[in-house]
Write a protein that binds this DNA or RNA. Sequence first.
DNA 1: CGGTATCCCCCGCGATACTG
DNA 2: CAGTATCGCGGGGGATACCG
Lengths: 227, 227
Amino acid sequence: MNQGFGQFCPIALASEVLTQRWMLLIVHQLLDGSSRFNDIRRGVPKISATLLKQRLETLEYAEIIEKRASGNSGVYEYFLTPAGTELESIIKGIGSWGQRWARDIQEEDLDPGWLVWSMRNRLNVEEMPKGRTIIQFEFTDAKPKERYFWLLVNEKKVDVCVKYPGNSPDIKVTSPVIVMAEVWRGIRPIRKAIADGAIQLEGKPSVCRAFPNWLLLSQLADIKRMR
Amino acid sequence: MNQGFGQFCPIALASEVLTQRWMLLIVHQLLDGSSRFNDIRRGVPKISATLLKQRLETLEYAEIIEKRASGNSGVYEYFLTPAGTELESIIKGIGSWGQRWARDIQEEDLDPGWLVWSMRNRLNVEEMPKGRTIIQFEFTDAKPKERYFWLLVNEKKVDVCVKYPGNSPDIKVTSPVIVMAEVWRGIRPIRKAIADGAIQLEGKPSVCRAFPNWLLLSQLADIKRMR
DNA sequence: CGGTATCCCCCGCGATACTG
DNA sequence: CAGTATCGCGGGGGATACCG
């Protein structure tokens, strides 16, 4: 059932693969630089491992990605083929369209883990202090297990922690998820949210002043929302 | 289940609507100028009426299309909103990608009715004789009910007939479906197919000579296939 | 022409547990 | 880390018949 639209229109043939559930999000992760199974998964946290594997196989069969052994320890990586790379403009187009016209964010979309993982790739490490910096996020309205996250920046490399990393943060950022989500999407200016008290910062004044410059926000944040 | 990917990434939000089964094909028909229910359906023949109505409602709710009464006799038309119009570049992109990289055509994709309906919109009426012209297609390997089609061109307007229109055709075009499909997609040059005998023409020599210029082929026919 | 109304099957997908 | 294995359900959607 899922396969085939009974016509040979190129849009239909492409849709067979591309419009399968989760497919665009997976390709997006690959375009964004993820290549390992669990990295892809962290960018698409609500997919099950089983289904992700299935989708990757479908993409491989469609020659959109290639699986390669990385080292010899059973570690694999997935890379886009030329056909896959050519999906970039389409995915970007859909992202832009979504930013402009898609429905508003609802409660059930607010996954704080995904938010923090997205920030990981868009941290302005050049502007950050040399040596190690720890940013703590506290989402006041999240479930206990999704309440705290830490971004560890070290030598321009960024890691996400879901457990207290053992060293006290340089800055603590506290807000409801929706506020950081809207900031991330470019709908809400971060400095205003801080001034409002919607986002609370705790740390050395110099660090708190610098913090808004550390977040580069979503790549789509500059695109004007139309609805 | 079908709704929601549990994240507020604009790609995910857009996907909720756009990657539903049939959705891109429906929007494509609207972009192509269809506005009435049964016209859309002829461009997406394998969808059921029930499902098409559901999809149109979803598109309306997402503010991608608008339904308007046409006249007052229970005739309705569907039009793209600005949000819908902005999908054009995405759909075109997917079409181009499909032409370049999607899988090859299989038996089950070969719907002759869809092929003829597609030709209707891409007939070079400027190059055709004044007055009425009737083109008959015979697909030698099609089921009895899908064996014959006629394109009636009159004063630069084109109609599709599935029954003998009562007047003898100016030209009869006979071939297997796959041959016309490949010609339509730009994979196979029409003049070569005629010279080979894969397509057989019957009619006045002057009409047979002119015929290859009448078909404009798919809009994507010029895009180079890569696999 | 432009839909409704049902009926029902099947399989996509989520959930959970387990493994080399 | 990168998957497998299994199970069960929900509902998407195909088929068919009917309607104003």
